[in-house]
Amino acid sequence: MAKEMTLLWGSGSPPCWRVMIALEEKNLQGYKQKMLSFEKMEHKSEEVMKMNPRGQLPAFKHGEHVLNESYAACLYLENQFKSQGSKLIPECPAELAMMYQRAFEGQTLAQKMADVIYYNWKVPEGERHDSAVKRNREALSAELKLWEGYLQKGSGCFLAGKCFTMADVIVFPTIAYVFRFGLSEERYPKLAAYYNCLKDRPSIKKSWPPTWQESQGQETLKDL
Score class of each variant (00 low, 15 high):
residue 126 G to R: 07
residue 221 L to E: 03
residue 214 E to S: 10
residue 75 L to M: 10
residue 30 G to R: 03
residue 63 G to N: 04
residue 216 Q to M: 14
residue 58 P to T: 03
residue 51 M to P: 00
residue 186 E to G: 02
residue 2 A to H: 11
residue 10 G to M: 15
residue 107 Q to F: 15
residue 130 D to I: 12
residue 189 P to C: 06
residue 147 W to T: 02
residue 1 M to W: 07
residue 41 M to V: 11
residue 219 E to P: 07
residue 175 I to S: 00
residue 47 E to M: 11
residue 172 F to V: 01
residue 77 L to D: 02
residue 145 K to F: 07
residue 30 G to M: 11
residue 4 E to W: 09
residue 50 K to E: 12
residue 92 C to L: 09
residue 170 I to G: 08
residue 221 L to A: 01
residue 93 P to S: 05
residue 32 K to F: 14
residue 59 A to K: 06
residue 27 N to W: 11
residue 159 L to I: 03
residue 56 Q to E: 12
residue 104 F to N: 07
residue 156 G to A: 04
residue 43 H to V: 03
residue 54 R to K: 13
residue 41 M to W: 10
residue 62 H to L: 11
residue 184 S to R: 03
residue 104 F to D: 09
residue 64 E to R: 10
residue 224 L to D: 01
residue 191 L to Y: 00
residue 188 Y to K: 11
residue 13 S to A: 06
residue 14 P to E: 10
residue 178 V to W: 00
residue 110 A to W: 14
residue 210 P to M: 14
residue 212 W to I: 01
residue 22 A to S: 08
residue 207 S to D: 06
residue 160 A to M: 08
residue 220 T to Y: 12
residue 154 G to I: 04
residue 181 F to K: 01
residue 182 G to V: 02
residue 214 E to D: 05
residue 94 A to F: 15
residue 214 E to R: 10
residue 134 K to A: 15
residue 62 H to F: 10
residue 153 K to S: 15
residue 177 Y to E: 12
residue 2 A to Q: 12
residue 190 K to I: 10
residue 99 M to C: 08
residue 90 P to N: 00
residue 167 A to G: 07
residue 108 T to A: 15
residue 24 E to Q: 13
residue 131 S to F: 14
residue 121 W to L: 15
residue 107 Q to W: 14
residue 110 A to I: 04
residue 158 F to T: 05
residue 177 Y to L: 12
residue 222 K to N: 06
residue 219 E to F: 03
residue 31 Y to Q: 06
residue 191 L to W: 02
residue 180 R to W: 14
residue 63 G to C: 09
residue 213 Q to R: 06
residue 116 V to G: 06
residue 108 T to S: 13
residue 12 G to T: 02
residue 7 L to R: 04
residue 100 Y to K: 09
residue 134 K to T: 14
residue 214 E to L: 15
residue 119 Y to W: 06
residue 12 G to H: 00
residue 78 E to W: 06
residue 138 E to S: 14
residue 179 F to M: 01
residue 207 S to E: 09
residue 177 Y to R: 08
residue 224 L to H: 01
residue 32 K to H: 13
residue 181 F to E: 09
residue 221 L to Y: 03
residue 110 A to M: 08
residue 195 Y to R: 11
residue 120 N to W: 11
